[in-house]
Design a protein around this nucleic acid. Sequence first.
DNA 1: AAGTCCCA
DNA 2: ACAG
Length: 208
Amino acid sequence: MFERPAREPIAPGAVWLHGFALADAGALLADVQLALQQAPLRHLVTPGGYRMSVAMSNCGPLGWCSDERGYRYAAQDPQSGRPWPSMPHSFMSLASRAAAAAGYADFTPDACLINRYEPGARLTLHQDRDERDHRQPIVSVSLGLPAVFLFGGPRRSDRAHRLPLQHGDVVVWGGPSRLAYHGIQALAHGTHTLTGPCRYNLTFRCAG
DNA sequence: AAGTCCCA
DNA sequence: ACAG
């Protein structure tokens, strides 16, 4: 049989952890729903004035936000004025273990972006560069429907790898890959046992 | 520019 | 390629 390796290097500093979150997926998804109850998903607007196809929310001390004025991290949900929901223990534990498995010890994220992709939703190539300390890695967890993850280099024009991410996969990048351009191809239609017709992505960062 | 449009 |  063909089996996926547990740990697949993508580029220097970047690792694909196949199925790393599988055992945690149920608990993670339950905590996603609890967080979204306090801070509902919403479609953000980019500085260019376009509505993002991915629906987003956050939990943890800081949340990633976008509006016509730009991108930033904020301690309060701009939609309610209240702090973002606290980071669930299940999230923190998974993120820390995944980072360690990828070679990044002592990862303590202060921000978790919750993304919901419905069919057609996508994220064009971009860099995560709104965080204060780029020495800390990014941990990205896939739940539900599969999606093609694009992972390029430091320039937008760099050739990108195309990684078919599955439910439970985790990608970690940092060090020389910290500012790599990355994105998600338009989600294909489908139904997943745990999430139904969508994909959730949890992105953990040290923003402050 | 974390999006959209146009061209080959 | 394009501009905030």
